[in-house]
Amino acid sequence: MPQKTIDFGKYGARGVKGSDAVARKLDELAGGITTPVTVKRGWTARLHYLTRTARSRQAAREAGLTVTDRTLTAWLQGRRSPSKANLARIDAAYRTVRRHNVARHLLRRLNRQGRGTRVEIHPLNQSQVPRPLQRVVEYRTLNVRRWDGIVAAWATGDRQGLEAAWDDTIVDLGSQWGQYEYVTNIGFAA
């Protein structure tokens, strides 16, 4: 795409990729267990979520939690605790399975039977950029009616796919869409 930013932050601008901000907001909307995985209550809650059915156990294995059933039982009964590496695997598997489980419901809420969802785009922070080099960017809103590609890429953890889907969406901002590749924040509710 011709308006891709090649050297973001060279003059002091601060922000995050718009697709990363969208992923962060979708994670927030997906909800889930808020207790940190490093606390016993956090990892046991995640393990209960990942092991309550045979289907969720299979999804956890596919997501990278490849310990034996005996080890899982020992963890759940409190006889043993997972190592730091296994805690990271538990958390990653939980996020992957949770995303997959809520994606369909979240997609339905965001699409709202074709009406879409209003998205607020807060521009990048240019307070550290010298005055002659600052761009004129402003707060924008956009009604996104097709969330299918965005939610599908988010649910599978496909960062490049999410970036491409988000770029295809912000093209609707008109000729200035490239100025919103990096943002301070993106907000929407479902």
Rank of each mutant, 00 (worst) to 15 (best):
K4I: 06
I6N: 01
D7V: 09
D7F: 12
G9M: 06
G9Q: 02
Y11D: 13
Y11V: 08
A13T: 12
R14F: 12
G15M: 11
K17N: 11
K17P: 15
K17C: 11
D20R: 14
A21M: 01
A21S: 04
V22T: 02
A23E: 11
K25E: 15
D27T: 09
E28R: 15
L29I: 08
L29K: 10
A30K: 09
A30E: 00
A30F: 04
G31D: 01
G32A: 03
T34D: 05
T34M: 11
V37L: 01
T38N: 13
T38P: 02
V39P: 03
G42V: 09
L47E: 00
Y49C: 05
L50S: 11
R52K: 14
S56P: 06
R57W: 10
Q58P: 03
Q58L: 12
E62C: 08
L65G: 01
L65C: 10
V67W: 00
V67A: 06
T68D: 08
D69N: 15
D69G: 13
T71H: 05
L72W: 03
A74I: 07
A74W: 13
W75E: 02
L76C: 07
Q77W: 12
Q77A: 08
G78W: 15
R79E: 01
R79N: 14
R79F: 03
R80E: 07
S81K: 14
S81E: 10
A85C: 00
A88T: 04
A88M: 00
A88S: 10
D91Y: 07
T96A: 15
H100D: 15
N101Y: 00
A103F: 04
R109W: 08
N111M: 05
R112C: 11
R112H: 15
R115H: 14
R115D: 11
T117D: 06
I121T: 04
H122F: 08
P123G: 15
P123F: 11
N125E: 14
N125S: 12
S127N: 13
V129T: 00
P130K: 01
P130D: 06
P130V: 08
P130C: 02
R131C: 09
P132W: 02
P132R: 14
V136S: 07
V136R: 13
V137S: 05
E138P: 03
Y139C: 04
T141F: 07
L142V: 00
N143I: 13
V144S: 09
R145C: 00
G149Q: 09
T156V: 08
D158G: 03
R159A: 10
R159P: 06
Q160K: 15
Q160P: 06
Q160R: 14
Q160F: 12
E163C: 00
E163T: 10
E163D: 01
E163Y: 02
A165M: 03
A165R: 01
W166T: 06
D167G: 01
I170V: 13
V171G: 10
D172A: 15
L173A: 05
L173S: 07
G174W: 09
S175W: 08
S175N: 13
Q179M: 13
Q179R: 13
Q179F: 14
Y180L: 07
E181Y: 07
N185I: 00
F188Q: 03
A189D: 05
